[in-house]
Computed example of a mutant assay.
Amino acid sequence: MYDYLSSAIVTLLVTLDPPALAPIFLSVTRGMTADERKRVAIRASLIALIIMAFFAVAGDATLKLLGVSLPAFRIAGGLLLFWIAFEMVFERRNARKNDLAETAITEDHIQNIAAFPLAIPLMAGPGAITAMLLLAGRTQGDMLLMSLLLVVTAAMIGVCLVVFLLAEPIARMLGTTGNIVLTRLLGVILAALAVQFLIDGVKAAFRLTG
């Protein structure tokens, strides 16, 4: 249980990447009052939590409906997480996120930035959803571990909410160098976790075919 808990915390912390969301949140809420920013932050966090909880609970059933085996998804998910780690280490992910945020502002005229781009895809994006499916698959139907996963997910979304509410002082505190160092460190950790997902997927696939 301790191994699962630590793996879930690190995986979700890295894929959600709360520190990197702070400057993006400030950019997409530019011109808003403190109260308006607070409402946007709470709504975005709730939407992201609902989406991620859905994939944790119904992800396995969705895969079966699509005819995709869990080992295959573990391998694909591991590759996807590794690519995200690669982007983080080589400073490509933040640029992509900022481009995505700017596009959303232009096209939607800030009508509903809590849902898009904050909740989707900046928080509950492909990487986070993949991580939820992979972590849910590792519970193997254990309701205690599934409950633990949902609690960890809520806690990590809570961290994102705190970052949103404290975005301005956090951005100033970390500075450019701090953001770069933290992003690269988290990227290396995520790469190691992605490789572990690949190993688990390959082992499970051999067990199914054997």
Rank of each mutant, 00 (worst) to 15 (best):
Thr11Ser: 10
Leu66Ser: 12
Gly31His: 12
Met173Cys: 14
Thr33Pro: 03
Ala115Gln: 02
Val162Asp: 07
Leu208Pro: 01
Ala205Cys: 13
Leu148Ala: 14
Val163Arg: 03
Asp99Met: 05
Val151Ala: 15
Leu5His: 02
Ala53Ile: 04
Leu133Gly: 14
Thr130Asp: 05
Lys64Met: 13
Phe55Asn: 09
Gly125Pro: 02
Leu182Tyr: 05
Leu49Tyr: 03
Ala101Glu: 07
Thr209Trp: 07
Leu166Cys: 10
Asn179Cys: 11
Leu161Gly: 11
Tyr2Arg: 06
Arg39His: 13
Leu135Trp: 07
Val14Tyr: 06
Gly31Glu: 02
Leu182Asp: 08
Leu12Ile: 11
Ala85Val: 09
Met123Cys: 05
Ile105Leu: 13
Met123His: 06
Glu168Phe: 00
Asp99Pro: 00
Gly141Val: 13
Ala128Lys: 08
Ile24Tyr: 02
Ala167Pro: 11
Pro18Glu: 04
Phe25Thr: 10
Ile9Asp: 05
Ile47Ser: 07
Arg93Pro: 02
Val151Phe: 11
Ile113Ser: 04
Pro19Tyr: 06
Leu186Pro: 11
Gly77Leu: 01
Arg43Ser: 14
Met146Ile: 11
Leu149Pro: 09
Glu87Leu: 15
Met146Gln: 09
Glu107Met: 06
Cys160Gln: 06
Phe25Gln: 11
Phe86Asp: 08
Thr139Arg: 12
Leu122Ser: 04
Arg207Lys: 02
Leu80Tyr: 00
Met32Glu: 02
Leu70Phe: 13
Arg138Met: 12
Ala41Glu: 10
Arg172Glu: 00
Ala131Glu: 13
Leu166Trp: 11
Pro117Asn: 09
Ser27Thr: 09
Ala72Thr: 15
Ser69Val: 02
Thr15Gln: 09
Val40Leu: 00
Thr183Cys: 03
Ala58Trp: 10
Asp35Trp: 08
Ala154Ile: 02
Gly137Arg: 13
Lys38Leu: 05
Leu150Tyr: 12
His109Asn: 14
Phe116Gln: 07
Met132Lys: 04
Asp3Val: 10
Ala194Lys: 14
Glu102Tyr: 06
Val159Lys: 05
Gly158Ala: 14
Pro18Cys: 06
Thr130Tyr: 03
Arg92Glu: 07
Ala155Cys: 13
Gly59Lys: 08
Thr15Ala: 06
Phe25Gly: 13
Ala85Ile: 07
Ala204Ser: 06
Pro18Arg: 13
Phe82Cys: 15
Phe54Cys: 12
Asn112Glu: 03
Glu36Thr: 12
Phe25Tyr: 09
Ile113Cys: 01
Asp142Thr: 11
Phe206Asn: 10
Glu87Gly: 14
Ala204Trp: 01
Lys64Tyr: 03
Asn112Met: 10
Ser45Pro: 04
Met32Ser: 08
Phe197Trp: 14
Val40His: 03
Asn179Val: 07
Pro23Gln: 12
Leu165Ser: 04
Asp108Gln: 04
Leu100Glu: 10
Arg30Gly: 14
Asp99Arg: 09
Leu174Gly: 15
Val163Glu: 01
Arg37Ile: 00
Asn98Ile: 02
Thr103Met: 08
Met52Thr: 12
Met146Thr: 15
Pro169Gln: 08
Asp99Ser: 15
